[in-house]
Design a protein around this nucleic acid. Structure first.
Lengths: 347, 347
DNA sequence: GAGTCTTCTCAAAGCGCTTTGGATAGACTA
DNA sequence: TAGTCTATCCAAAGCGCTTTGAGAAGACTC
């Protein structure tokens, strides 16, 4: 069923039917109602490609996900972020296109996206500190929103981000307030911008308290469970071992927890753990009382906000970059406690 | 840069340029080379909407994800499955569209997908046992592949699935061979087809060994960490508590592990755990020696296979449904051991 | 040298929609 | 009554591509 057929059935021209359906004022309300009901009964919805061709709008958004090779780690926050964004898109009639770009394919993939004209805008996920995609996108003229920030000036592009620096600063201070001075940072991959900001927050807090950041207490890597486990295990094996861990993700924190228990130590009593919690739907941080003390910022919310920002950019032709900063809250769970002198903690 | 401009630059007709680019035989090879290089230097790639309109092909696949409400749990396997499929699509020039359908929106979303003509095929993820989406899709005529199976006859649609029944049967037998007779099943949501098959496998194995399946040892729910924890905690509180757990996902297994340790018990020594492992990239089951004894079937591979099946269906106009069954392997990790008499395990 | 093949190229129609620039009819003004 | 608005509706162009049906040019037969 296409527009032509529908208009023939109705005895109207294609123009009128199109206008009726798209809410133009120059069509009689009774005619409009007739058209609408016919569209419904005959199951007509306009062909999206033809419509796109005619209007120049694709009514679709691409989410560009960077991956550095086949079988590379998929960011676990991805699913929830995308779910959040999708809520907004479907409410506004947009489709969501997923573009998983390998490093090797490099810039071509993004350029093609623009040239093929299959989307109206792009969401850049998981930006690096040095992020080549931004220049590429600017070059193509496609509106885009970054989930996170990069090394570029903050007002030179649109972004939505959580205040990673502040969250990790507060978390570190929280541990310091409990008397911890040997605080390990199990960070994400520091090529990623968010991980850098987190480290800076951590170091700033330590410095404020007169604690010298110790490189042997900082690790960086992809935030898997095993990574958390291995990092924590190595830290705990050292002589002057940490009494607290600051962990970049709940999944890694589960690994840290495992390492602590494997070492015969008790979490909270012997070793404290704070994690950042993206509030993933399948990995809630406990129910009423959280398992981990955590800085928390729902990534699903971020997805929604990112989508809204992008649609505003696209529809409003609001060319000035805009941005939004979300703040994490700190909830106290059962994984932190006052520091105990390490000699008391011989397992 | 569009076809018209490019052909003017080259001094050729649009037809010739189009044919040259699309590999038609009736164009001179030297002409073809000239066209190709011009396309490259001027950065031309055909507008996908116009192409789609002309050919009737969308060159896009939709992944239909069912969600039963806002803020519902996103299936954690989703990201890896999609990543696998995406590899295939991008190699073959297809785009991937994500359609997160809420139950409330119901059938309309799928019907629209077909009517709008924005995709050439659909992958149905996470099918229920009673799955209304199949009839809907058949009605629309869109080719589709199901990741998993449903209650319908197996040869009435195309699917790819892991042999859930067999995997859980083997896992249960493995535990029984270790002397376990009180084996709890921490299953996924049994509205989902895969979870049903797993339970059947589990019950079949028990029955074969002359063990009567005990409903109080079976739970069903969304496979989160907290769910694993709570289910296991409840089981462990009973008088005649299980000596082994069979868990539907690694994430839930981490919760089960936490419950076991909270109860003052040692995993493997006091309580055995087997889990199914979807081999998610961010949640590896340990490195050299797996944390958990597990049945394993990489979901990323399933994504690839599903995509290949669907493209074959679309391109080959191979209307006979085809399907593929993957088998899980069972790897022994550090979470299982011989059953000990419960009275020896007073913590 | 005329006729017949190949080989290469082209003009134009069509995919399904939006939108421009009228056309028509009735209602209103003067 | 003629002229001017308004409210409706329409025909046709155009979005950028593919593809049909044909034409031109050269190579070959006889």
């Amino acid at each position: 069923m296409n527009l032509k057929e529908l208009s023939q059935i109705l005895g109207l021209s294609q123009t009128t039917v199109s206008r009726a359906l798209n809410g133009y004022p120059e069509v009689n309300e009774t005619t409009r109602a007739r058209v609408a009901s016919a569209a419904k009964t005959y199951g007509y919805s306009p062909n999206v490609r033809a419509k796109g061709l005619a209007t120049g709008q694709a009514m679709a958004i691409a989410h560009a996900l960077h991956v550095s090779g086949r079988d590379e780690i998929m960011n676990p926050i991805f699913a929830d972020f995308v779910a959040g964004a999708s809520e907004v898109y479907s409410a506004r009639g947009y489709d969501m296109m997923l573009t998983i770009v390998e490093d090797s394919e490099g810039p071509e993939a993004l350029r093609n996206l623009a040239r093929k004209g299959s989307v109206d805008g792009v969401i850049v996920q998981a930006p690096r500190f040095h992020e080549p995609r931004l220049d590429l996108l600017r070059e193509t003229g496609l509106p885009f929103v970054v989930h996170g920030r990069t090394s570029e000036p903050e007002d030179s592009y649109s972004w939505i981000d959580m205040d990673n620096r502040r969250a990790f600063l507060r978390a570190t201070e929280f541990l310091a307030d409990l008397g911890h001075t040997r605080i390990a940072l199990i960070n994400g991959d520091e090529q990623m911008d968010f991980a850098r900001r987190r480290r800076i927050g951590y170091e700033t807090a330590l410095t404020r308290r007169g604690i010298l950041p110790d490189p042997t207490l900082m690790t960086t890597g992809a935030m898997t469970e095993v990574y958390g486990y291995e990092s924590a295990r190595r830290c705990l094996e050292t002589l002057d071992r940490p009494t607290a861990f600051l962990v970049a993700s709940l999944i890694s924190a589960l690994g840290v927890r495992r390492a602590i228990e494997d070492a015969g130590l008790r979490i909270a009593r012997d070793v404290s753990v704070i994690t950042h919690d993206d509030d993933l739907s399948y990995l809630r941080n406990g129910d009423a009382t959280p398992i981990f003390t955590a800085t928390r910022s729902p990534v699903r919310l971020a997805g929604r906000k990112a989508a809204e920002l992008l649609l505003k950019l696209i529809e409003g032709r609001d060319s000035a970059p805009s941005n939004e900063l979300l703040y994490a809250d700190l909830t106290v769970g059962r994984s932190t406690g006052p520091a105990r002198a390490p000699e008391l903690i011989q397992p």
